[in-house]
Design a protein around this nucleic acid. Structure first.
Lengths: 344, 344
DNA sequence: TCAGCCGTTTTGATCGATCAAAACGGCAAC
DNA sequence: GTTGCCGTTTTGATCGATCAAAACGGCTGA
């Protein structure tokens, strides 16, 4: 059945010979159409289309020293409830990269050191032009290591704990503003005892969200005692924390994640705090599919916009323009919801 | 601050000149160490390590006509509850690919045609050596189109609806066996009215799971009426379907997904069918994080093993050995659970 | 008439690796 | 002493593109 032994993809020379022009002219039609005579340009373009010719990525990469690839570590799906945000981000990033002629190259790693090591190998072999970091933590070691190795990168997440906020390009979502919006919404609903359910101090993201809640509940009585921290980002931990908050008098809760909120909703139901309007006095974070499915209110992160911003900074980083400024803080939006019938 | 203007990565020639050997010897140390004299080999290896030399992916790809990359479409995270399985699969695949010297190149697409078109562009430009298809549906058009274009590929999912089961290499999980295991487990618990909650006929995956349930409940009275189909893979649809099954007399339910099971658990609670042991008479599918969090029993798919198998077939496909056979059906496992306290 | 310029096209060199074949020194066989 | 072989190393060609500069024909202006 095998018709021809070698499919032998067409090259610049194939096309050039077919038309009796030089290879450079064919190349110019693709990369610098302006300098080619219109008549020639059309003949060449037609031949390219007819042959289904696609420039060799390897040949091009070898000459230009650019792979047009972006390295991204894919984390193990530990939770999957909150991992949904990262999912959306990766998809958006892949989409936007594609739109700009780049593409994502995935890697997996054991830990931060391993990630940097693998990024360095990919970079030195010319497999990627730059990296995108996600999940930046307090005093994250990766930015310095990448800078040391001369690898351009953009972080999705602020440089937490750094003296210089513009040490490297980053994009992030204003989590504090999200929690504040959630707390304010609960105030508007008439609540005066609004608790916060989050994690122990020390994580940049968690502290930021707590701070936002604190700003929004300022002035309400006893708000200081209504902050509870649990160790795990898990519904069972959320249930325990919510029970504690209710004991202390809270009638509404802002959570640092949808995982925690999922656990909290059961306690609110048991405590008879759900109300007749079926609006749970509860705000989760990340607007995950579970929140959408159950009808929990949650803070939505604009990951598509984040991906666009990351790519803009990324392209700046490799072309070394440095024109668009190092940091971008995007605003989340609160999505209020009514509990689904089956979840009441 | 910029010490040297050009970092100018080392090449084969750099290393070779440094030691006074030829470039080919350096190349051989990396690709064919056996034919190099041990003493030379060690000197060269030391120099490579010292310089932190990594072979240029572009140079190598140009010569060998291999990119060592695998194209994979990343779907938009529609649901995220069930998308979790795909998450784990992608991570495992990236991991296993890396272990074998390959890496994943992501793409996004609007639909199947767009996916094939983009894969073809990547393939013809030599950016990928092969593709991995996921979510194969009944009479999926992609296999034929890829074969037509001469693009090697492996599918994660059976060739549903095809006369020839070995039309192309594939790996899949035996969903029927999973549902059967779930139904059998419920029988062992003493249930005799076990319902199935799934989707309308016509989807390969859904029909397969229903068939497994049917096998396991054979012999029980009135089992034929205890199968209900809903249109959406969503908890609210699951709640409705479960209510219908309970009306028809079911005391236990096997679901085609965790999304459906999530909706069903509330109805079982309302109907007083949960029991004192806190084991919900319910089996979901895919063992997603939500199931783990709430304590729902579910069928777990061995995606890590699937990724390993896919890669094995993939490497066969590009080297054209065809030694390991075209199809692999893996067995899932049932994970029985007790409902978490907050979810009761 | 011829130098100079302009728009367009072609030529030569190069990116960094691997393949295939040649070269090399040493040694045994005839 | 020549031939042949063996283990190891080197040389030349090649993969497919882009950059930089040269070449080309036609035209203008001195």
């Amino acid at each position: 059945m095998s018709g021809q032994d070698r499919p032998s993809r067409p090259t610049l020379v194939t096309i050039a010979n077919e038309l009796g022009v030089s290879r450079q002219t064919v190349s110019n039609v693709l990369n610098n159409p302006g300098i080619v005579h219109p008549a020639t340009r059309e003949r060449v373009a037609a031949a390219i289309k007819r042959a289904g010719y696609r420039p060799s990525a390897a040949g091009r990469a070898l000459r230009t020293q650019r792979s047009m690839a972006i390295g991204l570590r894919l984390y193990r799906a530990v939770d999957g409830i909150n991992g949904a945000v990262m999912d959306r981000f990766v998809h958006s990033l892949a989409d936007e990269a594609q739109r700009r002629g780049y593409h994502l190259t995935l890697l997996t790693a054991e830990d931060a050191d391993d990630e940097v090591r693998k990024l360095e190998t990919l970079f030195r072999s010319g497999s990627i032009d730059l990296a995108v970091l996600t999940d930046t933590g307090m005093d994250d070691p990766r930015p310095d290591q990448l800078a040391e190795a001369g690898i351009p990168f953009v972080a999705f997440g602020r440089p937490w704990g750094r003296p210089d906020p513009d040490a490297h390009p980053w994009v992030d979502v204003d989590g504090g503003a999200g929690s504040a919006a959630g707390a304010s919404w609960l105030r508007e609903l008439g609540h005066t005892a609004i608790g916060f359910l989050g994690w122990p101090e020390g994580s940049g993201v968690g502290d930021d969200r707590r701070a936002g809640w604190a700003r929004a509940v300022a002035g309400l009585p006893a708000s200081a005692e209504l902050s509870v921290a649990v160790l795990d980002d898990h519904p069972s931990a959320g249930a325990e924390g919510a029970a504690e908050l209710i004991t202390r008098g809270a009638t509404a809760i802002v959570c640092a994640s949808d995982s925690l909120a999922l656990g909290a909703v059961g306690r609110l139901r048991i405590a008879g705090l759900l109300g007749d309007d079926h609006i749970a006095p509860l705000v989760g974070f990340d607007d995950t599919p579970v929140a959408r499915a159950l009808g929990m209110s949650s803070v939505h992160q604009p990951v598509e916009a984040a991906a666009v911003a990351v790519l803009e900074l990324a392209i700046d980083a490799v072309s070394a323009n440095g024109s668009s400024g190092p940091g971008r803080l995007l605003q989340p939006t609160l999505v209020p919801r009514q509990l689904a019938a089956f979840a009441r």
